[in-house]
Design a protein around this nucleic acid. Sequence first.
DNA 1: TAGATTGTTAATCGATTAACAATC
DNA 2: TAGATTGTTAATCGATTAACAATC
Lengths: 207, 207
Amino acid sequence: MEKQHVSAAVVRRLPRYLRYLNDLSRREIVRISSEELSRRMALTASQIRQDFNCFGGYGQQGYGYNVDHLRQEIAAILGLPNQKKTILVGAGNLGHAILNHIDFSRHGFKLTDIYDNNPALVGTSLVGVTVHHIDDLEQRVAADLPDMAIITVPRAAATDVVDRLHTCGVKAFWNFSSLDIRYDDSLVESVHLGDSLMTLRYHLEQR
Amino acid sequence: MEKQHVSAAVVRRLPRYLRYLNDLSRREIVRISSEELSRRMALTASQIRQDFNCFGGYGQQGYGYNVDHLRQEIAAILGLPNQKKTILVGAGNLGHAILNHIDFSRHGFKLTDIYDNNPALVGTSLVGVTVHHIDDLEQRVAADLPDMAIITVPRAAATDVVDRLHTCGVKAFWNFSSLDIRYDDSLVESVHLGDSLMTLRYHLEQR
DNA sequence: TAGATTGTTAATCGATTAACAATC
DNA sequence: TAGATTGTTAATCGATTAACAATC
C-alpha cells in the first residue's frame, strides 16, 4: 500500500510511533485518537494524521486508530517481520555493548557473524554467535553475503574495514565510527556519538 | 558574536563541520573555499556559507576560509573549550562502552562521577573515576551539582533514575534509554539506537 | 441522528538553493 | 587590475500546521 514517496522526516518518526503504540498495547489500550496521541508524544495531531496517511487510511472517522492494527502496519512498513542478515565488525567495548543491548530479531535483523582482530576473542561466542578473525572476512562474506554490516571498529581501522566490506558486496552499514561513510550504491545510517554530545554541549551553552 | 537565532538544523551540522576542519588541519591544509568543502562533505556551497554566516563573517572574499581559524570559532561556538561537569549513571555494557569510547574533554565535558547498583562495581574505578552506589546519588549530587547526566541504565530503571536526578537539580540528559525523557525545564539529547536501526531496516526494504 | 474524528486540501512556515553584488 | 570567493538577498522547495468536508 506504500504509494506516494515517503519523506525521510516521516521515516525517522516511524520507530517512535511504534514505541508509543507498543506501550499503549502493553497497557491494553485498544483505540487512540490522533489528538490523544499528539498529547502523549508532544506532536501536533495534524502531523500524526499526515504521517499515517502516507501509507493509507489506517484510521476510522469518529473512532480513531486501532492500536494493535496500526502497530502491526507500522512494523510491516519498517520491514520488521522479515529479518535481514547482519554481521558485526569490531567486538570491543562498543561492539559488546551493541550486541548485549540490541535485540536484533525485534528490529528486523538476524546476526550471522562477528569479526574482530583480537586472538583472545576469536573462536569464542558472544550472544550465541561465534567471533571470527577479521582475516576471514572476505572468504566468509563471499560464502554468505550479509545484507548489512555494523561498524564498531576503532576509527583508525574503519576506512579499511568498510572498503573491504564494500568490495565484497556489502551495501549497507550501521556506522558507529566517527568517519563518514559514503558510496553511491550503499545505504549508510550513522550514529555519531561525538556529534550528538557536542550538540548537547552547544545547547547547554545557550541558557 | 552569536546574534540571530541559530536553527536546530544548523547546530546539528556544526560537529560535522568541526570533524572535517580538524581533518583538514591534520593534513596541514590552510585555507578552504565553500566550494571545495561542499565537494568533500556532499553539501551545497550555498548551505555552507549560510551556515557559517549565522555566527559572523569568518571568511574572506576571494580567499575562502582559514581552516584553523574557522575550526576554533566553531569549537568556541559549541562551547568545547569550557568543560561542563557530567556524571554517568549505569555502568553496564553500554556505560562501559561510552566511557571508553568518548574523550569527554575533547567534547566539552568533564566526567565527575559514575553510578551503578552493582556491588561488584561500586568502589572500583573506570577511566580514572570512582563508581558510586546509586543509593548515594542524591547526597553526592546535592554536594556537587553536575551540569548533565548520561543515562545508560536499563529501560526498567530509567524512569526512576531520571526522575530522581531531575528532582535533585540535574537539568540536562544524554539519554541512551529507549524511553523519551521530557521536562519543560530540561535539555535532552537522546540516542535511540533501536530507532536508528529500524530506520536503516526501512530503507533496506525499499530497494 | 449528533458527535467525534479522520483524510485531505490549502495556508504557513522554515530550510535549502540560486544568484549576484560586494570585496578581498 | 582581474579573478576568486564570500556575504546576503531573493526564489524555491519541502515540511508542518490549520481548516474543514467526508464519514463512521
